[in-house]
Design a protein around this nucleic acid. Structure first.
Lengths: 159, 159
DNA sequence: TAGGGCTTGATATGTTATAACATCCAGCTT
DNA sequence: AAGCTGGATGTTATAACATATCAAGCCCTA
């Protein structure tokens, strides 16, 4: 599973295809992809960048889809629980899932230059973290793996 | 490097020894471990648990060491920059470093039952995350690795 | 068509974090 | 000793992130 986010790609296609997968998943499982939720996912998908809840709210508000914080947080909760989006803990911000449908443990590469975020995959339970957890008798339920640094473009700019 | 936090240990000794190391490090490098900073570190060291900035502020305030948020955030900034404490991103909270002096990339096991936190060590740049970063041409400067789950004691309680 | 459960609307508030500017103080300089 | 300098602290205000609560609407289905 490659990192998705920095390389150039057919973005329109990746947006459409993710939306289709989300719709199909909801149809299968009975989840309700309501107008606000669907639009929130579209907004996140529009960029490979993490958006704050209030950034999202601003866009929703400009479209008449709600003006108060709970609107954004409810939509984000839904998307995160459904696996359509992830929260980036280091930024207190949210990003659309780039590997929708794949069973994965997400990990993120966060560029401090341009704020773009690439999603990749990891298996922390199989590495040193998992070893430490087993040694301590700790049962892992969820992992947060995020790396901050510079993407290729921003390295060029810095040089 | 073992995980430190869940197992029973001589806590008074681990507090004293960490404070000594911090003092020695400041003496060596010219950093100033002022009364507020030193007391903040002591407060964090008092438990293997992450404290919010406002929790810390409450204690400092009760001792006449300052009443406004910047007091706590400045002390925490100093401790984090000096490597004496770490921020737990998943909790927006702070914990004293359990491996002071060792060159390490911290990783945390966070118990959702009792809020205790164990610090261990990881090498994300050598695992799958590092592979993905190299493949994407991304340069990692800092990593956040946190696992949420249940510690041994809380597993017993749940059963 | 009535009831239950999920969704949305609306108000208020709680929690985490920083900006901005004034003041103080220790150490150095002349 | 007077003055400068840089880090540390005091103080006020506000920005940014997140949730509790209760009322109202919608949709399914029995």
């Amino acid at each position: 599973m490659p990192a998705i986010g920095f390389e150039h790609h057919d973005h329109a296609h990746c947006v459409r295809s993710t939306l289709s997968k989300a719709e199909a998943h909801c149809a299968d499982t009975g989840l309700r992809l309501t107008p606000v939720r669907r639009r929130a996912l579209e907004i996140l998908l529009a960029e490979h960048r993490a958006l704050g809840a209030y950034d999202l709210l601003e866009v929703l508000a400009s479209e008449g889809l709600g003006t108060q914080p709970p609107v954004a947080y409810r939509a984000l909760d839904f998307l995160v629980k459904a696996g359509f989006a992830h929260k980036i803990e280091a930024l207190n911000a949210y990003i659309a899932c780039a590997h929708l449908g794949a069973d994965h443990t997400p990990a993120f590469l966060i560029c401090r230059g341009c704020n773009s975020v690439a999603e990749t995959d990891t298996s922390p339970a199989q590495g040193r973290l998992g070893d430490a957890a087993r040694a301590a008798g700790f049962v892992i339920e969820r992992t947060v793996v995020e790396a901050e640094g510079l993407c290729p473009d921003c390295q060029k700019d810095a040089a």
